[in-house]
Amino acid sequence: MSEKEIISRLKNIVKPYVQRNEGLENFNEETDFLRDLEINSANLVDVVLDVEDEFDIEIDNDSMEGMLTVKDAKSIIQKKMAV
């Protein structure tokens, strides 16, 4: 799966939880889920669960701990999909 494809799927996943819509207009690798999109932390756990479903992977606690930006999520997805 291309990086572009992963990022566009991620954008769809986070959409329902975003509290700051300006952050979505400029959605890129550097986008920070808490700071730029103001997703609350309980919903960030929902994002992790939705990513597991969408990409058919399992995200362990250590990986979840560091999933705070689009870039973090992208590399976790790529790593887990390669296994």
Binding site: S41, V48, N61, M64, L68
Partner: peptide, 25 residues
């Protein structure tokens, strides 16, 4: 239980001074 974890996380982050993490467990 969730709110306790979050409140403790914020106090702990202030002391340790680490970047945000998602580690409720």
């Amino acid at each position: 239980l969730w709110s306790m974890k979050e409140a403790a996380y914020k106090a702990h982050q202030r002391i340790v001074g680490h970047a945000p993490k998602l580690n409720p467990r």
